[in-house]
Design a protein around this nucleic acid. Structure first.
Length: 555
RNA sequence: GGCCAUAUGGAGAAGCGGCUUAACUCAUAUCCCUUUCACGGAUACAUUCUCGGGUUCGAAUCCCGAUAUGGUCACCA
């Protein structure tokens, strides 16, 4: 009779260490009372997902506000789906949002006493734990083929019973150790399954930091814990890693709730204390049919954090927006704090909504405008430079022509109590400010200018000549406007809308009409920032040239 | 389909048995300010909290049932 121990030895002859050795190697952390250890555990399968940023943000906050540790662990056990270099990129993007770990995997390096933080480098650890499970008879090798697995699945589906590898369907569970040993010696391929003692008719009580208490059926599936490629599955790696990395609170997406019974049983039979769990609601989006669905990286551009980076949103804006989803009281808080020092906000799990929020681009834009409006011209310059250098060459070259000029443009009505909120991102900045540059303005002039058709060309020309000759830029705004008004009145423009309405026959138009002529002439657009300041930035010479040019075009 | 979770306006939500003719924020609309836009200011926008029953003097809030939505059922995480 072959014993469990002998099976374990047969499968892992080279594994000499025990779980006790691991306990010594990775001792409990020496942290102050109440300090939480959280972790972000991404797979290197692509770009940083908006939902992952959300999870990381919360992990980061929880660790930070309890003087704990936030670390990153790379879950690269699915070698088929792995995308080269994406692990490193994930970390780079986290950094851009200031949601950065203090321990673990950093892309190029790893730092911390619980290393390695990359699962593919932890094979020896998993093997020790699995050997232990084999020894105590709570794991067994499974030789079932994919074909058999498919077959029982379809049978189960037909019979409308719970699908999976459990009970009578768990064929290899009933093999004798003698049979196991023989098949292993014969070189048959196998995986290792966890031998569950659960009964799915019985329920266990679980506690979740965001959902509170609820009941859920026990696990009775003999899940695979060790794949044929020698790497563990998520469930097993989760139990082992979060135990030996001494995670106190596992923060992850809600989609994991249903595998919680598996995890709890794993922790228990390994003799580990289970961590606290917080299952976060998932960020959703409305699809074409009006159904909610999880933000999908494949379908929704806003699902990838890189989308916001490419579009030039300030990182703070996304973080702020995500925080409003995380904690309903955050909005009130950030308004009270004038959009400053959001790092001082205290996050709490019980202020978290239980339903997945619909991603709201409009609200993101709102936060982005608020944030950019509060930056000074120097900060705007730096932000615009670092963005454009990476993503927008045309803008970068434009800024580089004359940084002072760029700052003057961006500073229009900025340094005041209620600054303009024209910009939410840098992605469309080029188009918004190109008219300030002569060569680009000439491009605009190639299109027909949209002057109001009720004024004939001669009148427009005349008014432009008048403005050119009589407008004095060396006055303050009030003086300048009085100046403009006087020119208008002289040529039968009403000084304001009321006068015009009272007696429309007496006037050719209003002062607004005059301002519009000037605005279109100088900017090519019907809308622009305050005309006085636009002219200040352009300067007299440039303004005069533009007027001359348009006058000649009108002939 | 089983199991789990969730359910307040266009969106995020507050509310936790009477203080609610349901707070606040975004969006939208209108008005005021005004040289356009943006800003700023004001107003409007759920007679009602998915639905149906019940408990109660009184329910968005408690109980029961239904419905809807989301998640999950892999050698993926």
């Amino acid at each position: 009779m072959v014993s469990d121990k002998e099976i374990a030895e047969l499968i892992f002859p080279d594994v000499k260490e025990t779980i006790e050795d691991l306990e010594k190697r990775y001792p409990e952390r020496n942290l102050p009372l109440g300090a939480e250890v959280t972790r972000f555990a991404p797979s290197p399968t692509g770009f940083l997902h908006t939902g992952s940023l959300f999870t990381s943000l919360i992990c980061y906050k929880v660790a930070k506000q309890t003087n704990g540790i936030f670390y990153v662990r790379l879950e690269d056990t699915d070698t088929k789906r792995e995308i080269e270099g994406s692990g490193k990129q994930l970390l780079e993007q986290l950094k851009l949002f200031d949601v950065y770990p203090s321990e673990g995997y950093f892309g190029d390096t790893q730092k911390g006493n619980y290393a390695p933080y990359v699962q593919s480098e932890r094979a020896d650890i998993y093997r020790i734990c699995i050997k232990h499970l084999l020894e105590i008879g709570r794991a067994y090798p499974c030789f079932c083929s994919q074909a058999y697995l498919d077959e029982i699945r379809s049978k189960q589906e037909k019979a409308k019973i719970i699908p999976g590898y459990y009970g009578q369907f768990a064929k290899c569970r009933f093999l004798t150790n003698d049979e196991r040993a023989e098949r292993i010696r014969n070189g048959e391929p196998f995986v290792i399954r966890f031998k569950s003692n659960g009964n799915h008719l019985r329920k266990i009580k679980v506690h979740d930091l965001v959902h509170g208490d609820f009941e859920i059926a026990q696990n009775d599936q003999d899940i695979v814990i060790y794949k044929s490629d020698g790497l563990p599955t998520y469930h097993f790696a989760h139990a082992v890693d979060d135990h030996f990395m001494r995670t106190t609170t596992v923060i992850r997406g809600e989609e994991w709730i249903s595998s919680l019974p598996i995890h709890l049983e794993l922790f228990e039979t390994l003799g580990f204390k289970a961590p606290n769990y917080a299952h976060l609601p998932v960020i959703m989006k409305l699809d074409e049919n009006g159904h909610k669905r999880k933000l999908s990286k494949r379908l929704d551009s806003e699902a990838a954090v890189s989308y916001f980076l490419k579009d030039g949103y300030p990182g703070e804006a996304l973080i702020m927006y995500l925080m409003t989803i995380a904690n309903s009281n955050f909005e009130e808080w950030i308004f009270a704090n004038k959009f400053e020092h959001m790092e001082n906000f205290t996050f709490s799990f019980n202020k978290m909504s239980l339903e997945g929020a619909l991603f709201d681009m409009g609200k993101l834009n709102f936060f982005a405008r608020e944030i950019l409006s509060k930056k000074n011209k120097e900060e705007i310059l730096q932000l615009a430079k670092s963005y454009s250098k990476e993503y927008n060459n045309d803008l970068y070259n434009l800024i580089s022509r004359d940084e002072q000029y760029f700052k003057d443009i961006m500073n229009i009505e900025r340094e005041k109590e209620n600054p303009r909120k024209d910009y939410e991102k840098f992605g469309n900045l080029y188009d918004l400010i190109s008219f300030f540059y002569d060569d680009l303005f000439d491009e605009i002039l190639k299109n027909k200018l949209e002057f109001n058709e009720k004024f004939d060309k001669n009148l427009i020309s005349l008014m432009l000549v008048e403005c050119k000759n009589k407008l004095d830029l060396n006055q303050d705004e009030q003086g300048w406007f009085a100046n403009l008004k006087a020119i208008g009145v002289e040529h039968k423009f009403a000084g304001n809308g009321k006068e015009y309405k009272a007696n429309p026959e007496a006037y050719v138009g209003t002062i607004s009409d005059l301002a519009e002529m000037l605005r279109i002439t100088l900017t090519g657009k019907k809308n622009s920032p305050n005309l006085y300041y636009v002219m200040q930035v352009l300067g007299k010479e440039r303004s005069d040239k533009r007027m001359e040019k348009v006058i000649s075009l009108l002939k």
